[in-house]
Write a protein that binds this DNA or RNA. Structure first.
Length: 238
DNA sequence: ACGGTTGTTAGGCC
DNA sequence: AGGCCTAACAACCG
């Protein structure tokens, strides 16, 4: 997560002021030292001695460092002696549990602890009649994967998002897991280099790299946007 | 100008 | 109890 790197300068610093419209107890922030910043999938975690502040940016969230955006109201702002963090449309909540008890970093795409064998064992335990497109958006299995990564990975693996988990050959499932990891790391790299959009092969596209027509469909339980090249991908059904 | 959305949680209902 | 569904978010982009 890029944000984690950008706030590393605040690590070990005491919060001087806290604000924002988010309904959390600011007294648990002010005058407390940030021990660490962590991420798990799309959760951004501000760690204190005895508790953690969980920040989630959802679909519309954004942030700014040091410079407040004018005309906008942050849901959370934290001021340190060397700068500030402003979070917009971010959901905030205190977590009392030990992080290891509620977060499994072997499922986090960007964690060095990420473990494809663990992902595979979870997939085996789940009902096989689910669409692979839905499975990839499940943060308890593919933590950190969103709609862009899902679309791009499925196209690269030539798999239709409505394919059923149980109908996809084991080798292909392994490929999807591996490619999801690779694309997640690439996503971060390309985002930093500001070339994410130019790397898209189907997401938001009308044609695939081979020149075929890409159709936009709303698939799966969540009805998220799926960009599908019916020529390139295969639909695995029982 | 306006409609759609890079996502997840919380809460309600059955 | 637990699974399923949906609202909420109120900003940005094209």
């Amino acid at each position: 997560m890029i944000l984690k790197e950008e706030v590393s300068t605040f690590k070990g610093k005491k919060i001087l002021k806290a604000g924002g419209y988010g309904e959390i107890d600011h007294s648990r922030l002010v005058n407390h030292v940030v021990k660490d910043f962590k991420t798990w999938g799309k959760h951004f975690l501000v760690c204190f001695n005895k508790y953690t502040l969980r920040i989630h940016f959802g679909l519309f969230g954004s942030y700014a460092i040091n410079e407040k955006r004018k005309g906008r109201n942050p849901s959370l702002s934290l001021q340190f002696n060397n700068g500030s963090l402003f979070c917009y449309i971010a959901h905030t909540k205190f977590i009392e549990e030990k992080l290891e008890d509620i977060y499994d970093w072997s499922l986090d795409m960007l964690s060095p602890k990420w473990n494809p064998a663990k992902v595979k064992s979870l997939l085996k335990k789940m009902p096989g009649d689910q669409q692979i497109g839905d499975v990839l958006l499940n943060p308890d299995i593919f933590s950190g994967v969103g709609n862009i990564i899902r679309n791009e990975v499925l196209y690269r693996c030539r798999v239709h998002p409505e394919s059923l988990l149980e109908a996809i050959p084991a080798k292909k499932v392994t490929e999807i897991i591996q490619q999801t990891h690779i694309y997640s790391l690439d996503f971060l790299k390309w985002k930093k280099q500001d070339e994410l959009k130019k790397r898209w092969e189907v997401y938001g596209k009308r044609t695939c790299p081979k020149g075929h027509t890409v159709t936009k469909q709303y698939t799966g339980k969540t009805k998220r946007r799926s960009f599908i090249c019916e020529t390139c991908v295969k639909e695995y059904m029982t």
